[in-house]
Amino acid sequence: MYESHEHLQTLTEIRSLMERSSKFLSLSGLSGVSAGVVALAGAAVVYTRLRADWVSALGYLPAGSYTDTTHAALVPFLVQVAVAVLVLALLSGTYFTVRKARRQEQRVWNASSRRLLWAMLIPLATGGLFCLVLLMHKLIWLAFPATLIFYGLALLNGSRYTVRDVESLGYCEIGLGLLALVWPGYNLLAWAIGFGVLHIVYGLTMYYKYERNTA
């Protein structure tokens, strides 16, 4: 009996080692929550600025109406907000993940986190450039669904190297991006849901599923 217990333990240990060595499991749920809060704040800033008629102000207007100055001024403003959101979300996300890794006594920068980052970087960089070109062609409204779709693809690609739950988040972002493409009037709303609400929901789920007991 004692021996069987020992063998079971060996199997459990093997399983955990296989997972720990090939996946980055220190991703904190709180990182998702903080990124979501930052994104919601960003969406609120954009909304206040465009309150007058935010549905049409995003550029979903008949072709040829992009020449007026309000829309020209909109592009740098949107890019600035997007970049600020991205930087703040990354900073706060990194903070919570580093903190979790320290608690688990794991290194943050190891083979699995490098793989995760690389898997996400290619779709993200492609998406970033794609959106810049869209803005260059003054297709502002298209950039919103595009960021969601490319981000979803990046998550899907990265989910191989971290907890599987990231995969579901990826599917949601892609679906939402496609919906936003069909109803461009709700671009900002879709963006707020995708980067704000979904991140918070995902983060809290992760936190309660994996971290609450160990925190």
Partner: peptide
């Protein structure tokens, strides 16, 4: 040894230091 093999089963290759840290 069993642990070393389980790590190498799921990773294409692993450096000495990474193995040391992991195990």
């Amino acid at each position: 040894r069993l642990n070393i093999m389980s790590v190498l089963m799921v990773n294409d290759s692993m450096s000495f230091n990474a193995l040391k840290e992991l195990l």
